[in-house]
Design a protein around this nucleic acid. Structure first.
Lengths: 155, 155
DNA sequence: CCGTTCGCGCATGTTTCTTGCGAAAGGTTT
DNA sequence: AAACCTTTCGCAAGAAACATGCGCGAACGG
């Protein structure tokens, strides 16, 4: 649990870019013996530097054509509303990230869906879930929904 | 390059959650022989379903205490300004995501830094980079910078 | 100056992965 | 319906990658 030296940082950078390299490959990248790469990586994991190793899937290939970032402001900030909102977020697979934020909005959502129809449907369900009526839209439960469709420039 | 069946979807879901399982472990999860798991995974990769496998590091552990989402609006939309902006983004390690978006802002940046000082420094550099003067702030080169510090609720 | 400790690389036993092969299942043609 | 072709499957053996014990050398402290 000490300080990280150059090799550790190189290792972390390497696996952050490509997490399925063999010890031999890592060895070349960080200029350390394969054995030592494995041992250090093992230690870095044990010390909690590596949260986990995951596969990044291709959204397009899976029919995900829209990635939207949506700002959500709740009208009421009571416990019930908050809980309903969190519950909805946890349940909705389309919401891949949820950030609580300071500023004019309360939350920033990252949403991945197939098409605009799915996106609209999700928003309707969100409004209903936090206690509003979809027909009255944001005026009841949500102070504001600022929806923007985004396109990745840099991952 | 055909349709994905249940096993394929299960495999993708599995490696998306944990990308370093052995064939035997995968085998249990998807109810398919280890060999077949490997073969199908190989095919899914060849067909481009898996973009890559990466390690997710612990931001806190590495001294990253602030994750900010920042909306950036450029004053001028000419080629030069756009190029300068892109170049800056590519160069800045603190900017981990950059989304082009439709709406009132042009870009949404996801920024990871150690502290508020680093964040301020980054913004200053950004303003300078796109042709403005830091002292005049956003009035010269940037139409608007809406900065918000965010806290993760759901990853 | 010597002893301890720590990190290093080598070598070996073990696990895991890859690939060739025959069997079974599903679809198509006659 | 039978014969055929194609695809997918699991097994097994060879190949590759991984984990671990060991001795060596450097750094540090007494």
């Amino acid at each position: 649990m000490e300080e990280l030296d150059v090799f550790d940082l190189r290792l972390l950078a390497a696996i952050q870019a490509k997490g399925d390299m063999t010890q031999a490959e890592l060895s070349e990248k960080v200029h350390l013996s394969p054995t030592q790469c494995a041992r250090r990586l093992q230690r870095l994991r044990a010390d909690g530097y590596v949260r986990d190793i995951v596969a990044i899937l291709d959204p397009e290939r899976l029919g995900i054509n829209i990635i939207a970032h949506t700002l959500v402001g709740l009208r009421n900030h009571d416990d019930e509303t908050g809980r309903a909102f969190r519950a909805f977020i946890d349940d909705a697979d389309e919401v891949v990230e949820c950030w609580s934020q300071t500023g004019d909005a309360d939350y920033l959502l990252k949403i991945m869906v197939k098409d605009l129809g799915e996106l609209a449907s999700l928003i309707e369900r969100l409004i209903t879930a936090v206690g509003g009526f979809a027909s009255l839209r944001s005026f009841v439960a949500l102070k504001a929904i600022k929806r923007t469709t985004t396109v990745p420039i840099r991952a």
